[in-house]
Simulated scan of single mutants.
Amino acid sequence: MSEESAKTWVEAEWADSLDEELEMEIDDLLVAKDLAFISEKKHKSPLERNTYFHELLRLQAELVKLQDWVQHTGEKIVIVFEGRDAAGKGGVIKRIAQRLNPRVARVVALPAPTDREKTQWYFQRYVPHLPAAGEMVLFDRSWYNRSGVERVMGFASEDQVEQFFNDVPEFERMIVRSGVRLIKYWFSITDEEQQLRFLMRIHDPLKQWKLSPMDLESRVRWEDYTKAKEETFERTNIPEAPWFIVEGNDKKQARLNCINHLLSMIPYEDVPHDPIHLPERVYNQDYERKVLPEHLYVPQKF
């Protein structure tokens, strides 16, 4: 392949990268007629689309550098994402992990505890997911379920919640003492914004899977969640692992601000790489490629 052809191919790959992000965003534009009243109420992002894409790709390139540094140095990083339902946690996690090696950057989103797990030490089911050297773990919700949904919905007793508040600072200090960088984000949105996002999910068949009975109940118990959040901040905002609040009403701004802040929290550096040279392919004149049966191929529908 000539240098010019290679350049053209790389440019095409970058275009595909933009298309990939556009596909993830375009569902926000597909508003059905019966959702017109929602789209009229939603604010317009002050970020131009081109600016957002440019900054996102720039920050994702820095995340790749961070990933290389984590592998090179054997660092261990845990990032906790908490916040109200529909606050945008999943969107930013997706953009952070989008271009990273899943063997290095793992996303952990645990389901409700099993009957067996309910009898264990509360933190036990989270411990196996903590990183080894050279790994980053992104918790899409975490042990803070106990001071949030479990408390508000009555799945944990007041004694269990109090025990959690007594234990979690020391649990996190133990994590940090073991050499893990622990960073905690809370995504914050307004009452009206959550209502609009829930309505979008209710009326959009591509998003209905995101709604659970717990999500719907959270609307009824908005003030209870607010009180639970305030006490969580008050009792778990420790110097070793402070909370950082991400304003989430504008999804694009929230993503860029969170990723930019995350990068600023870690003293990563460029890692030197040996030059990579693509070896020439070996051709065997005696080899004859077999013709495979046509039924093995996926039909060319598009």
Score class of each variant (00 low, 15 high):
residue 141 R to C: 05
residue 188 S to A: 13
residue 209 W to K: 09
residue 140 D to P: 09
residue 152 V to F: 06
residue 172 E to M: 12
residue 179 G to F: 11
residue 147 S to V: 01
residue 149 V to F: 04
residue 150 E to W: 05
residue 193 E to I: 02
residue 197 R to W: 04
residue 249 N to Y: 01
residue 247 E to K: 06
residue 215 D to P: 03
residue 179 G to M: 13
residue 225 Y to E: 09
residue 231 E to F: 01
residue 185 Y to K: 13
residue 210 K to M: 07
residue 200 M to Y: 01
residue 240 E to N: 13
residue 179 G to E: 12
residue 189 I to T: 01
residue 204 D to K: 12
residue 195 Q to N: 08
residue 179 G to I: 12
residue 172 E to C: 11
residue 156 A to P: 06
residue 251 K to M: 04
residue 137 V to F: 03
residue 159 D to A: 15
residue 217 E to V: 04
residue 141 R to K: 14
residue 153 M to K: 03
residue 139 F to A: 03
residue 161 V to Y: 02
residue 221 R to Y: 02
residue 154 G to M: 06
residue 176 V to C: 13
residue 145 N to E: 07
residue 216 L to P: 08
residue 163 Q to N: 14
residue 174 M to K: 12
residue 207 K to G: 05
residue 230 E to S: 10
residue 183 I to V: 14
residue 221 R to F: 02
residue 138 L to P: 02
residue 250 D to P: 03
residue 136 M to C: 10
residue 190 T to F: 08
residue 144 Y to N: 01
residue 217 E to M: 12
residue 218 S to K: 02
residue 230 E to M: 11
residue 209 W to D: 11
residue 155 F to L: 09
residue 151 R to D: 03
residue 151 R to E: 05
residue 171 F to H: 02
residue 242 P to C: 13
residue 178 S to I: 14
residue 237 N to A: 14
residue 138 L to C: 12
residue 137 V to M: 07
residue 152 V to G: 03
residue 152 V to M: 08
residue 223 E to Q: 15
residue 222 W to Q: 07
residue 210 K to R: 12
residue 244 F to H: 13
residue 226 T to L: 13
residue 191 D to Q: 15
residue 189 I to E: 00
residue 223 E to I: 00
residue 240 E to D: 15
residue 216 L to E: 09
residue 200 M to F: 01
residue 235 R to Q: 15
residue 184 K to M: 11
residue 180 V to D: 01
residue 149 V to C: 04
residue 206 L to R: 10
residue 155 F to Y: 10
residue 160 Q to Y: 08
residue 140 D to K: 07
residue 229 K to T: 04
residue 195 Q to R: 11
residue 232 T to G: 02
residue 190 T to M: 11
residue 142 S to N: 15
residue 177 R to S: 14
residue 210 K to P: 02
residue 230 E to N: 13
residue 143 W to E: 11
residue 238 I to E: 14
residue 139 F to L: 15
residue 212 S to E: 08
residue 221 R to L: 14
residue 150 E to C: 04
residue 186 W to Y: 14
residue 179 G to Y: 09
residue 167 D to N: 14
